[in-house]
Every structure is written in structure tokens, then in C-alpha cells.
């Protein structure tokens, strides 16, 4: 529970910056990161949806092995993969225990494991597709498939503003601390202290709402002068923005491998049953 006490200290401006940069630059060099966003979208469309409707354990296991492989290729920390699968298993565990109360038996384990496998495939597929894709590329990709320009603008704007906003939030939060009074006693399980901090975290949004309103106004004025509004509707702008996107050899290669692999597990599942 001491974590609660130091959480305010942990939420430092610099920490956030590092976090953001890791995402932004993180895994730019991997093979998968170099693929065109559209390729990954397409790939994900299959791996993110198909498992729901596949009930063959063999095929699911084959897919799981494949997406574990691709996830490792993206150089996402192994810990993330581990935590994710443990979390999914934990959820199934809850279901298992709960089902005993409703007259279930151990026969439930197999369907639950299948479910966990499905969810794992889907989650790892999304990690493969999106974790290695920098937000900028994701924005371009989304724009390419017809998502309104406001969304890719917002991603860029988010990167621009988040550190500034966070710093401001931090200042306001500290203003409360620099004039307020923390509880004398921490209370049971640091209860009072936790409540105190949560209250501050919520209250700090009052000043922030007002100052953000002022910012939003200048920003929209500036957008107006920079022709932003008009650009959302201009197809020529979209074309210019997406001029860099190209589907190359690697993309075809990646999709080909995926298809061949899938075909092989689908075929072999006809012969191998368990």
C-alpha cells in the first residue's frame, strides 16, 4: 500500500515523456514495423476475428504458436506476453471457480482453455499488428482506409499536447499540495491518504478544464488560419499525406508466409485430431 503514497511522486512529467518516446520510437527497426499499415490491418482482420469462429483446438494452437512467433519478432518485451497470457488464464480461473458454485464440473476446463487460446491469439495478433506500428503510421493507415481525417489529426495533436497538458496537470496538483493539508494519520490501509490523493486528482481537473478551454480556442483559431478545417474535406491533401505509403515486396512476402502457414494448419487439422 505504500505504493499509493508514492504514486503522486511516480507520476512525473519525465516518466511520461519516456513512456511516450518508447512507444513512438520503440520498435521502429523490426521487420514487422517496416510493413505497410494496410498489410498489418489486413493480417489483423483475420487473426483478430477468425478465432472467434474456429473451434478446432488444433488450428487454434497452430495460430497461437504463429502469433507468439510474430509477437516475438516485434521485440515487444516478453514480460508483456507473459503477463497477458497469465491475465487471461486468471480470468478463466475465476470462471472455473464460479462455475463450481453453479454445479459445474471439471469438464468445463477444456472449453475454457479453448476460450483462453482464442483470446490469446486475438490479443497477441493486435500486439503484433499495432505495438510495432508507430502512432504516426497508424494514423496514416487509418486515414488510408477511410477513417475521417480528424482522427489522424487527433493522434498527432495528442502527441503535441499531452506532455504540455500533463505538466500543467502536475502543476495544479502540486498547487493543491502546496497549500493544502494532508491527513495527519494515514488511516487503515492508508485509507485517508488514498482518499486525499484521489480527491486532489479529481479536483485538479476543474482548473484544467478552464485552461484547456482557453487553449482549445487558440488552437482552433490557428487551425482556421492554417486551413485545417478545409483540409479534412480535401482529397488532394489526403493524397499528399499518404504519398509515402507503399506496399512492397516485404508486405507480399509476409502475407504469403501467413497464408501458407494457415493453409498448412488447416489441412493438417483434417488429419490430426485431439
Amino acid at each position: 500500500m505504500a505504493a499509493a503514497k508514492s504514486f503522486a511522486d511516480k507520476l512525473s512529467f519525465e516518466q511520461i515523456k519516456i513512456e511516450l518516446l518508447n512507444t513512438a520510437y520503440g520498435n521502429d527497426r523490426t521487420l514487422i514495423a517496416k510493413l505497410d499499415p494496410r498489410t498489418l490491418f489486413l493480417w489483423y482482420t483475420f487473426f483478430g476475428i477468425a478465432p472467434w469462429f474456429i473451434y478446432s483446438k488444433m488450428i487454434l494452437a497452430g495460430m497461437l504458436v504463429f502469433v507468439i512467433g510474430t509477437t516475438i519478432m516485434t521485440k515487444v518485451s516478453r514480460l508483456i506476453i507473459f503477463i497477458l497470457i497469465m491475465g487471461l488464464l486468471g480470468e478463466s480461473g475465476y470462471l472455473l471457480i464460479a462455475s463450481f458454485f453453479f454445479g459445474g464440473n471439471l469438464g468445463i476446463i477444456v472449453p475454457l482453455l479453448t476460450l483462453t487460446m482464442k483470446l490469446s491469439v486475438i490479443s497477441l495478433a493486435s500486439i503484433t499488428a499495432f505495438c510495432s506500428m508507430s502512432p504516426e503510421r497508424l494514423g496514416e493507415g487509418l486515414l488510408r482506409i477511410g477513417v475521417p481525417g480528424q482522427v489522424s489529426f487527433s493522434i498527432s495533436y495528442g502527441y503535441r499536447m499531452l506532455p504540455t497538458l500533463f505538466e500543467e496537470y502536475n502543476h495544479i496538483f502540486m498547487s493543491y499540495r502546496l497549500r493544502g493539508k494532508s491527513p495527519e494519520k494515514h488511516g487503515l490501509f492508508y485509507f485517508r491518504t488514498v482518499i486525499y490523493f484521489i480527491k486532489l486528482a479529481v479536483k485538479s481537473f476543474y482548473p484544467l478544464l478552464l485552461s484547456m478551454a482557453k487553449r482549445a480556442r487558440t488552437t482552433v483559431e490557428a487551425l482556421e488560419t492554417k486551413g485545417g478545417q478545409y483540409a479534412f474535406r480535401n482529397p488532394a491533401v489526403k493524397k499528399l499525406k499518404l504519398a509515402k505509403l507503399r506496399i512492397g515486396k516485404n508486405d507480399y512476402f509476409f502475407l504469403l508466409i501467413s497464408v501458407l502457414y494457415l493453409m498448412s494448419i488447416f489441412i493438417s487439422s483434417h488429419y490430426v485430431q485431439f
Binding site: Y157, T164, K214, R215, A216, T218, T219, L223, K226
Partner: peptide, 14 residues
């Protein structure tokens, strides 16, 4: 061209 007094909010891209 207009440079606003609160120019921070005029910068909108990453």
C-alpha cells in the same frame, strides 16, 4: 501570417 501571444497552442502537430 499570425503568431499568437499564446503561441504554444498554435502548434498542433507532433
Amino acid at each position: 501570417g499570425y503568431v499568437f501571444q499564446d503561441f504554444e497552442n498554435q502548434l498542433v502537430q507532433a
